[in-house]
């Protein structure tokens, strides 16, 4: 049951994050939908981890070059998700308030994804290799 509780909590925080993102776009005062492109960053941010997990050998070494490269690229995607709305606000495509809301949504959603991997990443009952 612990897994179900964690899942519900994580989906709740994910919904909060998406709400922040949509507020930044859809409020009448802002009304510009460019920040929705950060959704792409949300979807591709776990991909390096999956690739490293599939490619890397399952030896019990504490770390491997492949996994570290995956962390590097994941960090890059996260940094890009934060940089993108700031650039949009800098060129005045969106307002700074919308940028702040998108950044808050970013933080919540990336923490959610991190929590998802901390809770379910190590478990044997739910492994990505089955897919």
């Amino acid at each position: 049951m612990a897994g179900v509780k964690a899942l519900v909590a994580l989906s709740f925080s994910g919904a909060i994050g998406l709400t922040f993102l949509m507020l930044g776009c859809a409020l009448e005062y802002y009304g510009v939908y460019w920040p929705l492109f950060v959704l792409i960053f949300y979807f591709i941010c776990p991909i390096p981890h999956f690739i490293a997990k599939r490619v890397g050998d399952d030896s019990d070494a504490a770390s491997s070059a492949c996994r570290e490269l995956a962390y590097f690229f994941t960090t890059g995607i996260v940094v890009s998700a934060f940089g993108f709305p700031i650039i949009l606000a800098r060129v005045e495509a969106i307002k700074w308030g919308a940028c702040g809301l998108v950044l808050a949504g970013n933080a919540v959603i990336f923490l959610t994804i991190l929590g998802f991997f901390l809770v379910f990443g190590r478990g044997d009952d739910f492994s990505w290799e089955q897919w």
């Binding site: 570290e68 490269l69 962390y71 590097f72 890059g76 940094v79 890009s80 940089g83 700031i86 650039i87």
Partner: peptide, 16 residues
């Protein structure tokens, strides 16, 4: 892990 994340932050901040 920490070194990889720090390097990623530096590298991609530079490009942004």
């Amino acid at each position: 892990t920490i070194a990889s994340v720090a390097a990623g932050v530096l590298f991609f901040t530079g490009w942004w």
